[in-house]
Design a protein around this nucleic acid. Structure first.
Length: 271
DNA sequence: CTTTTGACCTGACAGC
DNA sequence: TGCTGTCAGGTCAAAA
């Protein structure tokens, strides 16, 4: 469900409600997420203050006094800040209850999400240690993409989804960025010229920025932390539009299976 | 080393 | 209405 723009939107939405607040208790109704939710969460956090809320790739990092909560929304996760007295619904697995009576509540029907606790530097945590550069930061450049794709036969779409290459790009935005750059998702990554890599990097950046500005994409059931939908789905050029006409050239958008997942492209605009 | 595949889950939706 | 099959925004671990 949530890709980088959705996680960023969530991060910005919850941050003002959490920073400098003190944690009263942590309620774990179901610990069976992707990895079992550690008991340390409920024993360590009460009494601590949340110092910062940040995002790295699709992970949210809640910095407390003695450690950091690492939170991933998986495919179906959603975070909201509401009154702690609000009765939990089905799939509302975890509450971080604040002393001001509010709480951060995680709902995750598919339980592909994760909530972990680390006392060390988050960047050195096993899950974060091998992440590539943030797509909106300088480390993700055309020169970088060109260099690391030399000799690679993988489809360029799959390279964009590889979090060790670039962090936080999912299937929707990979497809949208490839349309923006005029490159077919199925192209071998190693076949891209330096100019194409530069175009692709610019397209990834532009697509993500516009999606963040629109509050993310509500394709199925994503919601912002305040319950509002995102609006970027109105701007999608190819994703989910198979059979419909290309907004640029009117040719029908193609759906193709690439690996296990769908990819969408315009045969005329993307080469 | 690179690349592909299977696995983890529930819910929404299409088609019968 | 209800059954069955398919698909889904992620990503790790194991296999090829």
């Amino acid at each position: 469900m949530p890709e980088l723009p959705e996680v960023e939107t969530t991060c910005r939405g919850i941050e003002p409600h959490l920073v400098n607040q003190r944690i009263d208790r942590v309620v774990v109704r179901d610990a069976r997420l992707r990895w079992r939710v550690p008991k340390a969460l409920a024993t360590e956090l009460p009494g601590q203050r949340i110092r910062a809320v940040a995002r790295r790739a699709k992970y949210l990092l809640l910095t407390a006094d003695t450690g950091t909560v690492i939170l991933h929304l998986g495919m179906s996760g959603r975070l909201r800040v509401l009154d702690a007295t609000e009765p939990p619904a089905k799939h509302d697995h975890i509450d971080i209850v604040l002393t001001n009576g509010r709480c951060l509540r995680l709902r995750d029907p598919r339980r592909f999400g994760a909530v972990l606790w680390t006392q060390g530097a988050p960047a050195e945590h096993k899950l974060l240690a091998n992440l590539g550069p943030e797509p909106l930061e300088a480390g993700f450049s055309g020169e970088y993409l060109h260099r690391i794709t030399r000799g690679r036969k993988r489809a360029v779409r799959d390279v964009l989804l590889d979090s060790s290459v670039v962090a936080g790009v999912g299937n929707i935005y990979a497809n949208e960025a490839l349309f923006g750059a005029g490159i077919r998702p199925t192209r071998a990554a190693g076949s891209l010229s330096a100019a194409e890599c530069e175009r692709l990097v610019r397209a990834v950046r532009a697509t993500l920025k516009r999606a963040i500005r629109a509050g993310g994409t509500t394709f199925r059931d994503y919601r912002r932390s305040d319950g509002q939908p995102g609006y970027f789905q109105l701007s999608l050029k190819v994703y989910g539009r198979d059979g419909e006409r290309c907004r640029t050239c009117r040719a029908p958008i193609r759906l193709q299976r690439l690996g296990q997942r769908s990819t969408f492209y315009c045969r005329r605009c993307q080469r």
